[in-house]
Amino acid sequence: MTIDILARNNVKVLGRGEQPILFAHGFGCDQDMWRYIVPGFEADYRVVLFDHVGSGRSQIQYYDTDKYSDLRGYAQDVNEILDALQLEDAIFVGHSVSSMIGLLASIRDGSRFKRIVMIGASPRYMNDSPDYFGGFDASEIQDLLNMMEMNFIGWASYMAPIAMQNPDRGELAEELERSFCSKDPHIARQFAEVTFLSDCRGELARTPVPSLILQCAEDSIAPIEVGNYLHEHLKNSTFRLMNAKGHYPHLSHPEETTSLIRQYLADA
């Protein structure tokens, strides 16, 4: 059976420009999370939005537990989307885990990529003593995974405000909680396990294209030590420390996020 790649990943193509730019959402989200960012690119770019399989309006019947037990399964989908649209020299904007998904996809086929923009990225969420601080001890990650399994709704309610980290704007945490809760709990837990136990540090040196690292001033998921590590180990990387706080600056601070990405692309 031939898979309609664009339908599988609910691909949307917008914009009036020639230069393709893909926006890839993070764990527990979907392409709607980019709605404040997209207007800043539609006039000058060919904007591509999509949902990872198991998220948003993707075709959930194509979710394969074996394929998606590794970030490379998601990276394969990115390559297939680029192939289906016949895109080359694309700019890939990834939030959180999708930054590493884009990195893995670029290693697989560098001709499809021109730049990678990483928002709240982490090559390894787990601390690896004594040389690496990812932000989470192994026991903390296991506790989160256990909580997802025992009480998914409770996990979403607990995690959303911690990740959003804008306590004076409760509506943002509420939106994130709703996004978490809209996912199939079993798929969400597997994606969380694949995300939080992943280790892409060994792949950083193989990245064939330049990158922009957008690091929030305070990020409970990807602390500044992680951003500094990425900048140190990614060749041709540019590091920008944002005023934004939290793990979702494209929702909480879309103007700053848009401005930094456009400035980087203009200088490239």
Rank of each mutant, 00 (worst) to 15 (best):
A217I: 03
L241Q: 12
L87N: 02
Y229N: 14
V53W: 08
V117M: 08
M159Y: 01
S179P: 11
L212W: 10
K67Y: 08
S58W: 09
K245L: 09
M126L: 11
S129N: 10
R178M: 03
R262C: 04
A192V: 06
V226Q: 00
Y264C: 00
I153F: 12
F50A: 12
D143L: 00
Y36V: 14
C216L: 06
L85F: 06
Q190V: 07
C29G: 04
I116E: 01
S220P: 13
L234S: 05
I107E: 06
V117K: 02
I91K: 11
R124I: 03
S211A: 12
L265R: 00
L176M: 06
V78I: 09
D83Q: 07
V48M: 08
E256H: 14
D267E: 06
A43G: 07
I162A: 02
Q19G: 07
Y132F: 08
M164G: 08
W34E: 00
F27D: 00
C29H: 14
I153T: 15
H253W: 13
G26T: 15
D199T: 07
T238N: 10
I81K: 01
S259I: 11
G15C: 02
F92S: 02
H247S: 04
K114V: 11
H52M: 10
H95L: 11
G110V: 04
N228K: 13
S252Q: 05
I37V: 14
N9R: 01
I101N: 03
P185R: 11
P208V: 08
L6I: 14
M148L: 09
G170N: 03
V47F: 08
T258R: 06
L234D: 13
A43S: 15
N146F: 02
P210S: 06
Y248T: 13
P20C: 07
E175M: 13
L49C: 04
A192E: 04
N228P: 12
M118T: 07
F41M: 11
F27C: 00
G170D: 02
S157C: 07
L22I: 15
P223F: 05
L49P: 00
Q86M: 04
A7E: 10
A105L: 05
M33N: 00
E203C: 14
F191K: 04
V97Q: 14
L197S: 06
Y45F: 15
I107F: 09
Q19W: 11
E80F: 02
A192M: 11
E218D: 08
L234V: 15
H253Q: 12
V13N: 05
L87R: 07
E174M: 05
F23N: 14
M147W: 13
N236V: 13
H233P: 10
N146G: 06
Q215V: 15
R189W: 13
I21P: 07
E149A: 03
R262I: 11
T65A: 08
D199V: 03
F152N: 02
V97H: 07
L260T: 01
A222S: 15
G120N: 12
A160L: 00
V226Y: 01
A121F: 07
R262M: 03
I116P: 04
S211V: 05
S252K: 05
Q61C: 07
L234A: 12
F41H: 08
F239W: 12
M100A: 05
Y45N: 12
N79D: 02
M242C: 11
R8A: 01
E256M: 15
C29P: 04
D66S: 05
R57G: 01
Q76K: 14
Q61F: 04
L176G: 09
